[in-house]
Design a binder for these strands. Sequence first.
DNA 1: TGTACATCAGTGAACGCGCGTTCACTGATGTAC
DNA 2: TGTACATCAGTGAACGCGCGTTCACTGATGTAC
Lengths: 195, 195
Amino acid sequence: VSRPYHHGDLRRALLAAAAVAVVEQGPAGMSLRAVARAAGVSHAAPAHHFGDKAGLLTALAADGFDAFADALEAASAGGLVDFGVAYVRFALEQRARFEVMFRPELLHQDDPALCEAAVRAWDVLHAAATRHAPPGRDPDVVAYTLWSLVHGFTTLALTGNVPATDPDAVLTLARSVIDAASLAPVDADAVPDRG
Amino acid sequence: VSRPYHHGDLRRALLAAAAVAVVEQGPAGMSLRAVARAAGVSHAAPAHHFGDKAGLLTALAADGFDAFADALEAASAGGLVDFGVAYVRFALEQRARFEVMFRPELLHQDDPALCEAAVRAWDVLHAAATRHAPPGRDPDVVAYTLWSLVHGFTTLALTGNVPATDPDAVLTLARSVIDAASLAPVDADAVPDRG
DNA sequence: TGTACATCAGTGAACGCGCGTTCACTGATGTAC
DNA sequence: TGTACATCAGTGAACGCGCGTTCACTGATGTAC
């Protein structure tokens, strides 16, 4: 009598509930039935929208890669340090999506939306690295170095291996760490002569 | 008639079977019953040895941290790049243990053996970073930078996000990446004067 | 304006499964005397 | 050498649970005429 039969935006609601479940139970521990329960619909509803469990996680990951690429693109105007901090910030703020994005074994890896969004995110990261790579350095190597650094810091932070109480402190440490890697000279004129 | 009632070294056999299961199903997907099956014993045997599922994973992680600390210690004599490569190599060779080590939510986190081994591994990494930190740099920051870099590279490699076919190629790329971060000067006399 | 019908969202019962854990037990080992 | 007994490793039946998936269905919406 209270709730209408049609939800109106159940797909979005299920994705939101899934994000909460992923944070609480981990990507592998999330269950369709728990998500349905949280969204207040029957346990079969998620399968109706996403086909199966991997379908739900794939949708979450594709959304995640899209938002991720947007966030990185927005940070592309600044330097490499700001860019890296944006990477870490996204993961902290969108933890569920971020975690699902890097669990390919749980996803439909050939999903077009997923692949497209993932490629776009990688392109943005690679472009940023190339733009700021010191002259003479292989841009690919710079890209993987940057990626490893910020991804590693993020992973350690998400598993509680970083000594920081609040998110701001984590981001401050992230900044120091990215800075310490000296991937690019602070100032182009100050490049030491390496011969 | 064939197998003796007492296995002789079932604990070790169960840990080995668990390592295989973790690689195949992931740390969360590993089940006590599958491990018992693989070891050829009754499904209740693992619980007899490890108390519960978290107990088995904790034993695997504690073993892992011990072997990890040993491996890093052995690499401490060389430079920071060799040290970092050793980190990556361990993860590739001992994938199951490594993955379990960084899934604290699945473990008995207060297990004494686990804590002791984890602290030892961290001490070895921190000492290496301190020893090679450029003068004037905060050794803590250098340690977290090194850790983020190698941990991130490892994570990306384990999730298939690194363009490399065989383990050797992965380690070669790892070396380039760690080198590119220029955490420490190649040669102490070549430190550029920063004022 | 009204009626018929296609379409789609969401339901709820049912299925079969593998799981973790418990518990009384049995088989083997080794020690005390 | 032999016997009694404590100890420990491993068993197997049983439990209750939550899960993913299927499927015939029902309720609501919207479009064609």
